[in-house]
């Protein structure tokens, strides 16, 4: 191998090492990228308030909204006080969820919203929601948790039923015994 080839090889080596490091970074970049795509297409929802764009109430249409809940782990129970509601697009709606903590220590939880069909998340604008922040439920407490939302008037005509579902997770280290709490 002459010196020229050797130098060329070194240069090539550097380029390819940089390329593989970039791809390693790209693997991580896929995470925010994926979240961004989901955000733009409204697939997964960021846990923050939506901006209300269209406040025109469309009285000609009624959409059934189902309220569902999942309690991760067997500790507590989250449930919707109303199972479903017929609403007009553009109408301001408030519904209540309720959570009961039967244990003798307080628990902190975070709820994650989810929608069926998934693309419906684009059209449900949450103005206020208990899922925007962590909720601490004291020992034995039953707490009412409100959600305020509007269904965007742009919702496609073939959408008749939307499910709004919350899954509540325990926050790590969120348990405190009643003596301290």
């Amino acid at each position: 191998m002459n010196n020229e080839t050797r130098a060329n090889n070194r240069l090539m080596l550097k380029k390819l090492v940089v390329m593989s490091l970039l791809m390693f970074g790209f693997g991580y970049l896929l995470v925010p990228l994926y979240e961004k795509i989901c955000d733009v297409t409204g697939l997964n929802q960021v846990v923050k308030a939506d901006e209300l764009v269209n406040t025109q109430v469309d009285n000609s249409r009624l959409i059934t909204v189902e309220f569902d809940s999942n309690s991760r782990g067997g500790l507590w129970r989250l449930s919707a006080l109303e199972k479903k509601k017929k609403v007009h697009p553009g109408e301001l709606i408030e519904v209540m969820y309720e959570i009961h903590n039967p244990s003798d220590f307080s628990v902190t939880g975070q709820a994650i919203p989810s929608y069926g069909p998934t693309y419906a998340s684009k059209y449900i604008k949450k103005l206020d929601c208990f899922c925007f922040k962590q909720q601490e439920i004291l020992a034995g407490e039953t707490k009412k948790l409100p959600v305020v939302f509007v269904i965007d008037s742009d919702v496609p005509l073939d959408v008749h039923t939307i499910t709004l579902s919350f899954t509540i997770f325990e926050v790590e280290g969120g348990r405190t015994s009643s003596a301290e709490g």
């Binding site: 997964n44 999942n70 991760r72 994650i112 989810s114 069926g116 069909p117 998934t118 499910t163 579902s165």
Partner: peptide, 12 residues
């Protein structure tokens, strides 16, 4: 019918 069940999210 075959639909994955994903923890934390609903699918339909």
């Amino acid at each position: 019918v075959k639909q994955d069940a994903v923890p934390g999210f609903i699918r339909d």
